[in-house]
């Protein structure tokens, strides 16, 4: 992970992909590079020429009115859109020097490195322990039972769930509360040790207290992972994100240091949205 400055692209000026203002506290190692990304659902174009550099060990928030393409964009990053037959994608999404949409890229391998947490937590139909141990075991990350126990405990600790569930690891994952289930899903995602964790409105189905817990968690997790989160809650973006991108009608209107964006946005549209004129 060393590519520092974004590579120059003939068609696009780098500042399109770079944040308008730099957040000096943030890490600027490149994680995912997106160039001229277009996506169609059948005939209707949902993403229009997106360019963005996502940095490692940052929380990047994607905001915008509903239907603006932020979730669709997020799902491009680990090719979850492959599951929808009518989707057609053009353009470059590059990670670790490889085009993730290229024919030789194994989407399963990609998802192994780019994990995802969804809006609605849906634990697997088995125990809390198995929910977490399952994927690492399949990925050969652990071989011995003791390693597995250790990994489950670490994931649950990192997700801030260990103290609540350590005595009932064998109970079904569905027996937990909504907020706990979401943290279980986060623990499940970090247990496979990905590079990037995508979060698709992870708190929208949760109560305020669970939401606060998960926001704290994101702040902690960014020490290890690149986090890209979609949120419709601007306060949340302001609280947790280092960088924020504002989407509108399938385009990135503004990509900026979060503090700057919420105080002095560079674009008129961003300002309108933030001040609640539409959305």
């Amino acid at each position: 992970m060393n590519s520092q400055a974004p590579v120059m692209n003939q068609q696009h000026t780098p500042d399109v992909a770079q944040p308008y203002t730099r957040n000096e506290q943030a890490c600027h190692d490149l994680s995912i590079r997106v160039r001229d990304l277009n996506l169609w659902y059948g005939k209707s174009q949902a993403l229009k020429g997106l360019n963005i550099d996502l940095f490692q060990k940052n929380v990047t928030a994607l905001i915008g009115p509903s239907g603006c393409g932020k979730s669709t964009f997020l799902r491009c990053l680990n090719r979850m859109n492959d599951l929808i037959p009518s989707v057609h994608i053009e353009g470059l999404v590059e990670m670790d020097g490889q085009d993730v949409n290229a024919g030789k890229m194994d989407e399963v391998a990609l998802r192994r490195r780019v994990g995802m947490v969804f809006q609605k937590p849906d634990p697997f139909p088995n125990s809390i322990y198995e929910n977490i141990a399952y994927a690492p075991r399949m990925h050969d990350l652990v071989s011995r039972k003791a390693d597995q126990d250790e990994l489950v405990e670490k994931a649950l600790r990192d997700a801030g769930l260990w103290n609540e569930v350590k005595d009932k690891l064998q109970e079904p994952g569905t027996s937990l509360s909504g907020g706990q289930q979401q943290r279980l899903c986060i623990a499940r995602a970090i247990a496979v040790q990905p590079d990037v964790i995508l979060m698709d409105e992870p708190t929208s189905a949760l109560d305020p207290i669970s939401t606060a817990t998960i926001e704290d968690l994101m702040d902690k997790l960014k020490e290890q992972f690149t986090i890209v989160t979609v949120t419709h809650n601007m306060q949340q973006a302001a609280r947790v994100a280092d960088y924020t991108a504002f989407f509108h009608l399938g385009e990135i209107i503004e990509y900026n240091d979060t503090k700057v964006m919420f105080s002095t946005p560079a674009q008129k549209k961003t300002e309108d949205y933030i001040s609640g004129r539409y959305g």
């Binding site: 670790d96 890229m105 194994d106 391998a109 990609l110 490195r113 040790q193």
Partner: peptide
Amino acid sequence: MSHSFDEIS
């Protein structure tokens, strides 16, 4: 900690 695409594949 992190594995490359090739290793995973």
